[in-house]
Design a binder for these strands. Sequence first.
DNA 1: ACTGCGATTATGTATATACATATCAGAAAG
DNA 2: CTTTCTGATATGTATATACATAATCGCAGT
Lengths: 254, 254
Amino acid sequence: MSDSIAEMVEETVGGDASTSLYQRILNDIRDRIVSGEWEPGYRIPFEHELTEQYGCSRMTVNKALSQLAKAGLIERRRRSGSFVRRPQSQAAVLEIHDIRVEVEALGLPYRYELMAQTKRRATTVDRDRLGPSPSTAGQVLALQCLHYAGVRPFCVEDRLISLAAVPEAADQEFRKSAPGPWLIGQVPWSAAEHVIRAASADGETAADLGLASGAPCLIIERRTWSAERPVTHVRFTYPANAHAVVARFTPSDG
Amino acid sequence: MSDSIAEMVEETVGGDASTSLYQRILNDIRDRIVSGEWEPGYRIPFEHELTEQYGCSRMTVNKALSQLAKAGLIERRRRSGSFVRRPQSQAAVLEIHDIRVEVEALGLPYRYELMAQTKRRATTVDRDRLGPSPSTAGQVLALQCLHYAGVRPFCVEDRLISLAAVPEAADQEFRKSAPGPWLIGQVPWSAAEHVIRAASADGETAADLGLASGAPCLIIERRTWSAERPVTHVRFTYPANAHAVVARFTPSDG
DNA sequence: ACTGCGATTATGTATATACATATCAGAAAG
DNA sequence: CTTTCTGATATGTATATACATAATCGCAGT
């Protein structure tokens, strides 16, 4: 089997220059792990063995193994070797799209409507919504918006923006375009937290969405920080049948 | 400004040996990006400039920059340099925990109950649930389980296992322990897809969970593949107020 | 047996060097 | 004035080497 690796390298080393050697080593090992050929706990060949098998230097092997370790597929132990880890934290990557993009992906015309915009001194509730902060927040901007897909309401947006973090927002009127895309261009955010849950629509939200009171809704909340300072908190409320969140996982593509 | 980097390095180069040099370079640059000091489009110093500033070799700088590029924070262009990318795909990492762990994290005793276990030839519906497959599925195992937190039902699990992918499951009786943890130890999975949505509880589910019919629920569905073959599909149904999904994002921790 | 210590081993990081490759600016040719 | 070619440049990958560090094994001495 070690021979087959060596042969494969011999074959392709002059032919396929599209992928680098360390990438091929990485892929080979990853494939053996995800295929189950090398089960959790299996000790993968030492660096110096792979060095021989692939006919390359240790640095090249090391680059591949280091990346596998960072991706969580293997665990490296000095003096002992590298071992296949058991898939533990079922982590998945969740992509958050702009609502306009979401709606247009459904083939429906997108429309945005501002329902209310208020500037006020941050209340206790507001501070809670924005999340833990080193400084006490000052002024905030509160927004209620409605996003339409075609003629039907698609979701309600309830947003709070910290004017301490984004003073430019004070002079903005979000009548024509939604605050989300504008904020992304304005503030470099360094951390975000999402909470996804289900709830019954309260009276007001139900009315906005054209639902019966108590109808099930999907709620996505997002808090964003920029360099430790809270920037914004949004709550999107979708009718239950209108929306779902999709997350995917594939181990270390490189 | 370049001077301050150089000074900082001079200070710490002999003192703090806890982090490696390339890690410090990586952190320095990442901090400047997420703080907004270096805005999207900004051309970060060339490798040879950083080499000078940090008094190290190009390989060390290259390692740091390559990782930042892989993490999507910068874009590297030959002959032109490396540029700060604008945060585009708002990706967040979602950790899926075992239900036992979830319940015990709430400080409640966990209990598991098997409600039904059926072996049958895969129907069209079953094949749809398992997802796209190269081969036509044969036998499947269908399970309905209930997870308790204390005396109250916590969530309903509705699972389908492909016996073509996991033949050992045919001989298992999931009376005492849930199929999820067992499967993880059994099959190395290579890809997973999650769908999170809200819905009204149907009559049966509502009864199992002790809810009024039509009560809002959070539904998490997961499909798992092992080397292109569908392994299992699960649907967890939670009462709306019992559960939420949390996802976090922090740019490239290393 | 038990303890402590040195030798061994595999990984972790860094260096200087080399050549490949994509790309752009500007010179040369039409 | 446009096209083509050439050289400069920054990144991409790979190598041989070196020393640091953590963990383990086995031996020596109590």
